[in-house]
């Protein structure tokens, strides 16, 4: 019986990779003090905390409605403002339609740098600049949304059918007409899906903005945590869970219709 030749085994390569990853893990684990024994030793403290945080304080729920509304409002402003700014940012960073090489490279790097900072960093920065409160949160999420949407959207724009843009150009259209008539109409459905996706991220993000003083439900969370009112903390976390899941389901349902 003729057996097919076995695939080449690159054992050395895999071994090197495995040892490298193992070393990285061991080094990280040791430096951050990862220990299962500590986890077991602290189980008593942990169970006390869990007892204290259950049952959730349902009487606290009515006082959460206002802050939750604010949280969703922050997410909404952040998404809409970010979505509008993301259009030119994404178009200029899409190679086939970007007006010239310099704009493309500058905008591309701008997008990458924007994406490196997490939403809470922006929140801390804006809270310092414009004062504590929901406006700082809305600004932070606007920047964050630009980062998320423009990256995804520019990839969609790069994948468009270029015959249409050429058709606009060939019939004497300006660059703006090429974008407005030949480019964007092709990608609106994707754009809408990305905006909704950013809204989901923003709703989740806006829940914790208050930890750094940028408005929303997180502000209350922070004060209750500081006072060790863990029954109320649990109530807030459960409410966050429900709101996030509801908005996610809504968004997924709409996105499914779009595509």
């Amino acid at each position: 019986m003729n057996r097919p030749a076995p695939p080449p085994r690159r054992l050395g390569l895999w071994l090197t990779i495995l040892i490298g990853l193992g070393a990285m893990t061991a080094w990280s684990g040791i430096s951050i003090g990862f220990s299962v024994s500590e986890l077991v030793c602290n189980a008593a403290g942990g169970s006390r905390l869990l007892r204290e945080s259950w049952p959730p304080d349902f009487a606290f729920l009515p006082r959460l409605i206002g802050p939750f509304l604010e949280t969703v409002q922050i997410a909404l402003i952040g998404t809409v403002v970010g979505a509008v700014i993301a259009i030119p940012v994404a178009v200029l960073a899409a190679r086939p339609v970007s007006p010239n090489w310099l704009t493309w490279i500058l905008d591309r790097n701008f997008m990458n740098i924007l994406r490196t900072l997490p939403d809470l960093f922006w929140a801390m920065l804006f809270a310092t600049a414009v004062g504590f409160g929901p406006l700082a949160g809305a600004l932070a999420l606007s920047v964050f949304s630009v980062a998320v949407i423009s990256k995804l959207f520019s990839e969609s724009v790069e994948a468009i059918d270029l015959n249409l843009t050429e058709a606009v150009r060939a019939s004497g259209g300006s660059w703006l007409q090429m974008i407005g008539l030949g480019t964007l109409p092709q990608v609106w459905p994707q754009y809408a899906a990305y905006v909704l996706y950013a809204f989901e991220l923003n709703v989740r993000g806006s829940m914790v903005l208050g930890l750094v003083g940028a408005g929303g439900i997180g502000m209350i969370l922070e004060t209750q945590r500081a006072n060790f009112e863990y029954e109320r903390v649990t109530m807030i976390v459960l409410a966050v869970l429900v709101v996030v899941l509801l908005i996610e389901q809504f968004s997924i349902a709409v996105r499914r219709r779009l595509t």
Binding site: L211, L221, V240, L245
Partner: peptide, 8 residues
């Protein structure tokens, strides 16, 4: 799990 932000 995913619905709760890691910071919580």
């Amino acid at each position: 799990i995913r619905a709760v932000p890691e910071i919580l």
